[in-house]
Write a protein that binds this DNA or RNA. Structure first.
Lengths: 157, 157
DNA sequence: CTCAATGCAAATCTTTTGCATGCTA
DNA sequence: TAGCATGCAAAAGATTTGCATTGAG
């Protein structure tokens, strides 16, 4: 999609329309960063990156925007155990696939993997169904995460 | 096991011997609380409870002791997404079974469940094996957690 | 007797909030 | 133009650290 000056209009512009939230420079810049970056950015990572595009932005706005984006389900919020939240674009957006994370407890490196997720999905669906029945608990999302040592860190221990 | 005054000696006394850590009043009191309480206590919960047994204790000591206990693998540390760590005695200790948690995102209630864990274990073992091979990643532990709404909160929404 | 363990106060660090001002729709 | 959005400064809240003192082994 293109606007009248010939620039491509980012996909998220549409998602802001009619959702009750306004699309501001700050939000546009933040989504730009998120959609270009690889992943697992902390609020500060995002702040620093956005700062280059839009220097007037404050860290507060980054936090507030991320909260909205999580609410809109455009962004996932993760916690890898280092007391700082990480954000990445949700699945289905920009062709992201369902994946999970391996977190190295030594160096903090994070490896995304997409293997085995089908089998996992199957199991999780079963489990969720069973848990909903047994506990009358309405499951909205889940976390699966593996911790350990990456190849480099195994050598250095 | 009993000492010479006829009091039962807590099981953890043995585990402190020869591990390089000293068994102090504070640590004894903290383990008392952990082994009597149900579960998912925050550092402050523990601090308040220990304070009744051993009023001189400081919150700092609670944190430092918990860190040791996690290191000794006597205690698990959890994060249920509310930015405060939770602690509970490790499995295998005091007959605790392998279990996972359902976390209500509305009221914070936590439900332990032991159902489906066999199937989960099977899948996780497979996954871990596969991931170790593929990424040369040595997995040491994992997190599985479900979030959603408990029965009460579903009614009130 | 020695050095690990402790308590207190202060520091850290991430995230949140209050409030006056700016900007989108 | 109306209100949502923003930036700044300050607050909040959990956890950690420095340091002098205490106590376990």
């Amino acid at each position: 999609m293109f606007n009248r000056t010939g620039n491509q209009i980012p996909w998220w512009h549409g998602r802001f329309r009619g959702c009750g939230f306004r699309l501001t420079f700050a939000r546009d810049a933040i989504l730009n960063v998120l959609s270009k970056s690889n992943k697992h950015l902390s609020a500060e990572d995002i702040y620093l990156a956005v700062h280059k595009i839009y220097p007037a932005i404050g860290l507060t706005t980054v936090y507030r925007t991320l909260e909205i984006l999580v609410q809109m389900k455009m962004v996932f919020k993760f916690d890898f155990g280092d007391r700082r939240a990480r954000y990445e674009l949700a699945e289905g957006i920009k062709g992201k696939e369902h994946h999970h994370h391996l977190v190295c407890t030594n160096c903090g490196r994070i490896i995304d993997y997409t293997d085995f997720v089908d089998k996992e999905k199957e199991l999780l669906n079963q489990t969720e169904k069973g848990l909903q029945q047994k506990f009358k608990f309405k499951i909205t999302n889940h976390i699966i995460q593996f911790y350990g040592l990456c190849d480099r860190c195994q050598k250095n221990v």
